[in-house]
Design a protein around this nucleic acid. Structure first.
Length: 143
RNA sequence: GCAGUAGGCCUGUCUGUCGCUCGCUCCACGCGAGAGGAAAGUCCGGGCUACACAGGGCUCCAUGCCGGUUAACAGCCGGUAGGCGGCGACGUUUAGGUUAACGUAACAGAAAAUAACCGCCCCGCAAGGGGUAAGGGUGAAAAGGCGAGGUAAGAGCUCACCGCACACUUGGUAACAAGGCGUGGCUGUACGUCCCAUGGGUUGUAAGAUCAUGUAUACUGGUGGUUGGUACGUGUCGGAAACGAUACUGUGUCCAUGAAGGGCGGCCCGUCCAAGCCAGGGGGUAGAUUGCUAAAGUGCGUCAGUAAUGGCGAACUCAGAUCAAUGGCAGACACCUGUCGAAAGACAGGGACGGAACCCGGCUUAUCAGCCUACUGCAUUU
RNA sequence: UGCCCCAUGGUGUAAUGGUAGCACACCAGAUUUUGGUUCUGUUUGACUGAGUUCGAGUCUCGGUGGGGCAA
């Protein structure tokens, strides 16, 4: 079974979802990343269609203000995606256990590059935080 | 060999593994394909798109030596003349017309255009008047140059030579060049207005086309177009009266009900229309599909042409995403740099500029390392 | 991605191709016991590189930076 995948249904691309995420989402910072996330309960009827969006959807952002060239923006986003892809499994497990869905946006707020090794470590930290957030939310609203 | 000039090429190759996008498929742990020379800037030109548009004129904008090339261009190729730089190979820049007319030319200078400040000459006692562009100084620019004749002093006033303009002859498709036996005594310069030729409607793939959930709804058809309460009024009955009982196709800025209002002069009937409900249905937001990649296509050969380019032949199919794929990690081989070494080689380091977004032709800008061709100057050897 | 606009002292903003002004700010001086107000004076400027021109902030062509629209 393939595990370290990142198909389209695990990415955020619908305009409505993105607006909702940035309007109601919660935030924390793992420098140089600013993470915005929104946790929802996955009811049987509210379950998103498998065609549309998975239980865990992400997007990456590299602002034009800080990276002038398209090639630099692409590079940052690729590194971010790669780091997420290789470490996302614990997040999925937590969601599976608590019966929730999550939407996350990773915003890169520095204007300098970091290496893949650093990115990998930071992403590990960020995912740990998200995992804790999921478990707490599940406790507060027991279904 | 050193220094340089011009033009061109290239933008490493391969493997493993974990992923992404598209296509195919026997629908899976499969197979195939997947960034550039500039994909960039958006500076020109086209295709394609929707809208506008009888025809003609004016205005506005762009281009502007000559010829060629092209779908088209402000591009490209070849050529002409002048200026500037270089010993040179060569580079760079300017050039439609305007002896028609008009406008502007700061400061300085007498004067910036029908020239008199100083100077020179003549007249006059003087004041002043007249002639004069050879000399002075100002300026970015000052009325063809030089010599001789001539003159009161001067002046193309006259002449020779040079320059300029026009005409002619020869060469060239032409720009133009060369020529001498011609003609003219001769136009200040720059920019603009102006004149001539050619071209130009606007819009940009987030253009445009198709489908269309939800919400609101144009339009069409059907249905519907009250009922109850309460108060008042009227009639009937009871009662002397107050009032009570009961009824109504009755009335209302009253209350309730999802809605109950208006027109046909007033009232009634009737009828029409609102509001409401049901069904159909047009446009259309989110979203999806399309536009979307087989084309002025790519490289190869050959022919025509100095070349840009074109003709012919056979071959190939080469990204198509849409909050936006083409990446991460690891390794090998070439290449370059540094250190060590006689060499082989060893070790360390390096690889730029930059990421398709409808598609083409150019231009401009960015760019590590390397390679090729032709030519120039200097030095040296034979 | 496509289309378009702008750049003048620290700030805001003018000027027909001819010595770059104005206001505020800053600094110095005067006035005042001191500060403020007021008065006087000085300094600070063309985003960048070429070209056209006798002469460029202005005209032309590259580049840089900033902003807007489709939203």
């Amino acid at each position: 079974m393939k595990q370290f995948t990142l198909p389209k249904r695990e990415r955020l691309y619908l305009r409505e979802s993105i607006d909702e995420l940035f309007a109601n989402g919660r935030t924390f910072v793992v420098f140089p990343y600013r993470v915005v996330y929104l946790i929802k309960k996955a009811d049987a009827e509210n379950l998103p269609a498998p065609e549309k969006q998975g239980q865990c959807a992400i997007m990456t952002v590299a602002p034009k203000k800080r990276f002038k060239h398209a090639v630099d923006r692409n590079h940052v986003k690729r590194l971010t995606r790669e780091a997420y892809r290789t470490q996302k499994l614990p997040l999925h497990a937590a969601l599976e256990k608590t019966g929730q869905t999550i939407e996350v946006a990773f915003l890169y707020v520095d204007n300098k590059f970091i290496t893949f090794e650093q990115t990998y470590k930071l992403m590990g930290k960020a995912i740990g935080k998200l995992q804790r957030a999921i478990l707490e939310t599940a406790k507060n609203q027991p279904s």
